[in-house]
Design a protein around this nucleic acid. Structure first.
Lengths: 149, 149
DNA sequence: TATGTTGTTTCATAAAAATTCACCTCTTTC
DNA sequence: GAAAGAGGTGAATTTTTATGAAACAACATA
């Protein structure tokens, strides 16, 4: 059901100019999918749709990159399941993972393309992340911790 | 000032991962630009920044297309200044413009790439817009009227 | 000097989107 | 069959974003 609904969403935003999540949920209603804005919000997040600014107000569209959609959802879950703790000192963050998972965690980190991250080094169960400065390290460490919740 | 601030914004979102407009206005504060979220919201609209979904939450980025930024702002103003009235019947919308401006209005319409619009025909001071059906015509006509405000 | 005019900003608030929490409905496992 | 776990959802709420109105500044005009 969810799968079919998300396909419908992709089709709808292709065919019509959808500007809000309420509009989208109405469009779905008229196709027999009875969902609320809350669900649409989650679908949009999963599909990685983006709200593109155009002349007559903004509009939801599918992301340019293909294959992008599939990857993003997984990155989060890989990171989530691999990482045990996140700590930091000076301008470096230390991430402890399950044994053998450090490399996977590092790759997901890289894939996020956060500009603050200068680079990562992965051992077996530890990833070292190098940031520009201590303040940045604190901020990014906080964000990574958030991702574990 | 505004110009310089918007340049700063482009640089900031390039260098750091900005996830909300509040974050952005704080980043601006620390660079000496003392602005509120309201202003940031308008800057983002003018710069046509988009909020791109990624693994660790979404993030503002510059649009892919270059030259995109300049064009979008203008489309709206051209349409606004050229068009006098918008009306519709059946599955067609009739737009009256200032003399000689119909072509310009039609071109801006096309540039919006609204999927509901099958096509346009421009005379001297009139544009005919062909939609899929009457319901769509009513909806799109409403939207175009909105743009005149 | 008074009087627009235009562009930009903030404040307050409305609108839109994300999230929390509770509750379902299935599976799986004992 | 009961209990536990995983997915998925809606209602209500919070957070984030957009906007209307008023204020202000810079500049031109009478």
């Amino acid at each position: 059901m969810k799968q079919r609904r998300q396909n419908a969403i992709l089709q709808i935003i292709e065919e019509t100019c959808i500007r809000t999540q309420d509009e989208l949920s109405e469009a779905l209603q008229s196709r027999g999918f009875d969902v609320t804005q809350a669900t649409v919000s989650r679908d949009i997040k999963e599909l990685c749709l983006l709200k593109k600014p155009t002349a007559g107000g903004s509009r939801y569209t599918a992301p340019a990159k293909e294959g992008f959609r599939e990857s993003v959802g997984r990155v989060h879950s890989i990171f989530h399941s691999a990482v045990k703790t996140v700590d930091y000192a000076m301008h470096t963050i230390v991430i402890h993972t399950l044994p053998g998972m450090a490399d996977a965690a590092a790759i997901t980190l890289e894939s996020m393309e956060w500009p603050e991250i200068l680079g990562t080094i992965a051992g077996d169960d530890t990833v070292l992340v190098i940031l520009r400065d201590g303040e940045t390290a604190a901020r990014i460490a906080g964000r990574l911790s958030e991702m574990l919740k």
